[in-house]
């Protein structure tokens, strides 16, 4: 199958493979140990999947804000987002 029209690049392939791996890992985790809704510092009762979604969406906004407001390397935003994801998943 010719996928040239999709214009794949290595960074985007890594990005989507990571997303797919996260989804598979979360599904497996849910089957092995189903989660219960809980309330953390986010003012909502959230499941593990909710916290993943909130973490990913806020990480996207962190990257956009970084790009729009600063001229520093995007990797700083990436590291900050990873820390933020960890905080949301654990205490969110």
């Amino acid at each position: 199958m010719n996928l040239e029209w999709m214009a794949w690049t290595l960074p985007t392939a890594i990005f989507f493979i990571t997303i797919i791996c996260i989804l598979i890992a979360m599904t497996t985790w849910q089957i092995i140990s189903p989660c219960i809704k809980r309330r953390g510092f986010i003012p909502l009762s959230t499941t593990r999947g909710d916290r993943l979604f909130i973490g990913l969406l806020s990480s996207a906004y962190i990257h956009l804000a970084w790009l729009g407001l600063t001229n520093f390397t995007i990797w700083i935003a990436f590291v900050f987002s990873l820390v933020w994801m960890g905080v949301v998943m654990r205490w969110g």
Binding site: E4, M6, A7, T9, T12
Partner: peptide, 25 residues
């Protein structure tokens, strides 16, 4: 997925593209 791929490249035509990173954003 295709839109994400396009967003980090300069597309001139089928098979003609250049990686530009986050420049467009």
């Amino acid at each position: 997925m295709t839109v994400v791929n396009y967003s980090i490249q300069d597309i001139f035509g089928p098979g003609e593209r250049v990686f530009v990173g986050l420049e467009w954003f």
